[in-house]
């Protein structure tokens, strides 16, 4: 089961919800995946140990100039100007490449060989309390995060419950994180900016056909605006977290709310139980459907 925590607007508390949700329960089958690879932060709170890291790269072309006859077929198929013929020479621009392998497939001389471009790394570790975290880290200067996000998600064990921390926004990186999730939990900030971006994410999730619920963070900023929207859209509000300076201060120091504030722990446990209930129901409904 994959539960992805997303928001549209940045800074609404996705990471706070993800890491505290994981820490509020003691279950071996719950693992955390941080897919905000541009700015991963879950490790700051979970504090994993014995970290193993793996560089992640994608295929880019390298031309064997001995074999190349300068026919230009690779240039013709490439939509991204990543391989081009200039003054009787083949030039490649690895940073433009989307790894579609079109050039490799089209070359009549078998002159396009496989090279690689490093996108970043995937790290994995467990903290002292046994919470398992896998996270991606995009190389600074690299523009394409979706293939790295996809690599992080490839490491999800389908048997357990995976909590996925998504990047903000509604374009490719966020969509890559949300794709094929069983449930999307949207963390909404009750402000006009928050509501605007929440609505965009809800529209994206309709396209992706992922069931959706909302939690409201800092629930007293503009009370009512998210509730009103959720009611209109028929989306369940699973939990409300009140604004608290104490909570903000705990988070700012990289600490877990569930360890410092018992009342917060209760709210997160309640949220997890409701999520679990929803997922069990949908699983059963799915099995009946089959």
């Amino acid at each position: 089961m994959i539960i992805t925590i997303a928001s549209g607007k940045g800074g609404t508390g996705k990471t706070t919800v993800t890491v505290n949700l994981a820490a509020s329960i003691n279950r071996d089958d719950v693992t955390v995946f941080d897919c905000d690879v541009e700015e991963p932060n879950s490790h700051i709170f979970i504090k994993p140990e014995n970290i193993s890291s793996e560089p992640i790269s994608v295929m880019v072309p390298k031309v064997d100039t001995q074999r190349c006859t300068l026919c230009g077929a690779c240039e013709e198929i490439c939509q991204f100007s990543a391989i081009t013929l200039v003054a009787k020479r083949i030039m490649t621009f690895p940073e433009m490449c989307h790894s579609c392998r079109g050039c490799e497939m089209v070359c009549p001389e078998d002159a396009v060989k496989e090279d690689s471009r490093v996108l970043g790394s995937v790290h994995q570790g467990k903290n002292a309390r046994g919470i398992d975290l896998t996270w991606g880290e995009l190389r600074v200067g690299e523009a394409m995060s979706p293939p790295l996000i996809s690599q992080v998600k490839d490491r999800i064990n389908p048997g357990g419950i995976a909590l996925v921390d998504a990047p903000p926004g509604t374009s490719c990186p966020a969509i890559e994180a949300l794709r094929s999730s069983d449930y999307a939990l949207l963390v909404a900030e009750p402000t006009p900016f928050g509501l605007n971006d929440l609505a965009l994410t809800v529209e994206a999730l309709k396209k992706l056909k992922v069931p959706t619920g909302i939690v409201i963070n800092r629930a007293d900023d503009a009370p009512g605006i998210v509730e009103e929207y959720a009611k209109k859209e028929g989306i369940e509000i699973l939990q409300r977290f009140p604004f608290s300076r104490e909570a903000a201060s705990i988070c700012s120091r990289g600490k877990l709310l569930v360890n410092e504030m018992p009342e917060m722990k209760a709210l997160f446990q309640q949220l997890f139980n409701r999520l679990n209930q929803l997922l069990t129901e949908s699983k059963e409904a799915g099995e009946v459907g089959k």
């Binding site: 991204f80 100007s81 990543a82 081009t84 013929l85 200039v86 003054a87 621009f93 433009m96």
Partner: peptide, 12 residues
């Protein structure tokens, strides 16, 4: 994308 590359080719 790749306007600079294409323009370079045109000029070449």
């Amino acid at each position: 994308q790749g306007a600079g590359i294409q323009a370079g080719k045109t000029v070449a």
